[in-house]
């Protein structure tokens, strides 16, 4: 799996050279977009990480995690990922803040750390996407979009836990 990235990059370079694309110029243009994204997400991330750290140091997350433990156990989820599961469809920055907290507390290679990583990688900020896409064409009746999208998010969570347990643990 570690070879996936180097091989992918090599493939991009080879294809670019064959097609006589100015690959380095393209790279620089793309990287500029990357720095713009970073600039855009920085304020959101700082605000939300501070909020999540406050919640953690106040001791409230321990109580919250304690409260969701029965539910998490029933589903076979590590209890640490439940808050992230709830926040994921609403806020990308907020779930990144929770993700790094799980890495800090349990380690990135723990069951909770791996499951949270897969969850983060296989879901999107659902409410945001629905709002942006339908908002752009002024659709107000979104019918069964949200229920289908949230069912997909829940499936991703179940599968994240299941695949990590079967493949990585």
């Amino acid at each position: 799996m570690d070879l996936f990235m180097p091989l992918f990059i090599a493939a991009v370079v080879v294809l670019g050279l064959i097609k006589k694309v100015p690959i380095f110029e393209a790279f620089v243009i793309g990287a500029k977009d990357g720095i713009k994204t970073l600039y855009k997400i920085a304020p959101t991330l700082v605000g939300l990480i501070v909020a999540v750290d406050m919640l953690k140091s106040s001791g409230a997350t321990d109580v919250l995690c304690g409260a969701v433990t029965p539910l998490a156990d029933a589903l076979g989820f590590p209890k640490e990922i439940v808050p992230m599961l709830l926040l994921r469809p609403i806020s990308g920055g907020g779930s990144t803040a929770l993700l790094t907290n799980i890495y800090k507390d349990c380690g990135p290679d723990s069951f909770a750390g791996q499951a949270a990583s897969v969850l983060a990688g296989s879901t999107e900020t659902t409410f945001y996407a629905v709002a942006v896409y339908f908002g752009s064409v002024k659709i107000t009746k979104t019918r069964h979009t949200l229920i289908s999208a949230l069912a997909a998010d829940f499936t991703a969570a179940v599968m994240a836990v299941l695949t990590v347990r079967l493949i990585l643990q």
């Binding site: 799996m1 570690d2 996936f4 990235m5 790094t100 890495y103 800090k104 380690g107 990135p108 290679d109 750390g113 791996q114 990583s117 897969v118 969850l119 990688g121 296989s122 879901t123 997909a152 998010d153 499936t155 991703a156 599968m159 994240a160 695949t163 990590v164 493949i167 990585l168």
Partner: peptide, 20 residues
């Protein structure tokens, strides 16, 4: 955060997103 194999989650991510 110190993962030994940061991209070992790839197959899990692919399966989970495909199912979702």
């Amino acid at each position: 955060y110190g993962s030994q194999t940061p991209f070992d989650i790839l197959p899990c991510v692919w399966i989970s997103s495909a199912c979702a």
